[in-house]
Design a protein around this nucleic acid. Structure first.
Lengths: 232, 232
DNA sequence: GAAATCAATTTGTATAGACATAATCATATC
DNA sequence: GATATGATTATGTCTATACAAATTGATTTC
């Protein structure tokens, strides 16, 4: 193939094709970087970059000295973009509205201790609000903020700006954990979202940390019409 | 910082720290690669690699000639690993069981045409089965396979091996679309999963293609105790 | 036969240098 | 003033080379 216009993209795609078309069978050892570099008429570093991308995508597994082999069970991973609710709604061409439902401070141990791993004495800022798309409830946000990390949260006015967006501006994070599941709407959720109690809802939860310190826990409740989609 | 042990990881993490701690503010232009290379005592290529990773993670935005700036709205993305059901169950230390419920061929237009975009005449292999963890229903799998792409699916014996695993072995794919949502259990789903009708279930759907040609559509139904979790 | 040791091999990473590419800014032209 | 043009500059990519790190396989030692 010498003479072909090479680039790590072209090489990566060609190798992905060979895997997809089973020219390189699952579990099989593929040629070493030097051999491939000669075949593609490129430097080893270029082939290396292509292979590293395939490895990151889960198509191949690489080990020093052992070489590179086609993944037996392509443990593919799906990536979901997590935008701001407002952007998500506006991207659909819908009108965005925001409504603050309640705001307070509390320290329920099942949140403070069990979920965030904080001392039982720590009190948290608690905000409940609703995001609407074309005047229909889109997401109910139930959020707890740790003011020991984000002191300004005590004074923040969440009537005009959602805690979602406020935190993006004021509280950088280094780590996050996402959970998604189905649940039955509680009486409160049903009332707020204009659903019947017990109706299925799609629930996302996110905890974020700055280093070791938890910043915020948020529970996001969507009606069952909500879909989370991604393309690999 | 010359003299510090450098590596693209160390440089990447140091820059991530500066962003997290707001030494580099959102929207701000950060120094160019050459300057950073001098500061870190590394080659420009090394700084480049570090910056590319930060860009991929969504922490910075880079444009030729314009330079690199800290992302204003870190549109973070969550990555979910999609393993085989069996691996998922065994990874929890639970006993895996598989049960074939039905197997046939049909061509319902709402699947053939509307979902897969095939000619109305195309008939599909239809498999329904159940995956159990410690003898409790874990996932109900309702799958349609396009035998025009995977001819062997017509003869495959799905009593011993789940279509899930069979397809991984026999049908490579190049593209996939994932959808997740909450729904109410249908009468059939409730019966199979030992739930009450209308109870919330967590539903995943996946369509895969080989090039332009659809391979399979699968609907995966989990009880509402199911959680899909990821970190960062 | 089991354990320890060592050499060989493959990927991982760093580097300097080069050119490509895209976008910006200033300038010239209509 | 609006539009084209071109120089400039920061990032994008490739190359050749070098050494590091991990792991295998063979060899030696007990």
């Amino acid at each position: 193939m010498t003479g072909t216009r090479s680039s790590f993209r072209a090489i990566r795609d060609e190798m992905a094709r060979r895997i997809a078309e089973r020219l390189w069978l699952p579990g099989a050892l593929i040629p070493g970087e030097e051999v491939l570099a000669r075949e593609f008429g490129a430097a080893r570093a270029t082939v290396n970059r292509a292979l590293q991308e395939l490895a990151r995508a889960g198509l191949v597994e690489r080990r020093r000295r052992a070489g590179t082999r086609v993944a037996l069970h392509p443990v593919r991973e799906a990536r979901f973009v997590i935008p701001l609710v407002r952007q998500e709604i506006e991207a659909r061409g819908a009108e965005y509205q925001y409504r603050l439902l309640s705001r307070g401070e509390a320290a329920p141990p099942e949140i403070v201790r069990a979920r965030l791993g904080l001392e039982a004495t720590a009190s948290l800022v608690h905000v409940r609000c609703l995001h609407l798309a074309d005047r229909v409830p889109y997401q109910f946000e139930d959020r707890w903020i740790n003011p020991d990390v984000v002191a300004a949260a005590r004074e923040a006015d969440f009537a005009g700006i959602s805690p979602n967006e406020w935190l993006v501006e004021h509280a950088p994070f280094t780590d996050a954990e996402f959970t998604f599941r189905a649940a039955a709407a509680s009486a409160e959720e049903a009332a707020v979202m204009q659903l019947r109690e017990g109706e299925p809802v799609f629930v996302g939860e996110r905890i974020t940390w700055l280093g070791e310190r938890p910043i915020t826990l948020v529970r996001m409740v969507h009606p069952s019409s909500h879909r989370m989609v991604t393309r690999l």
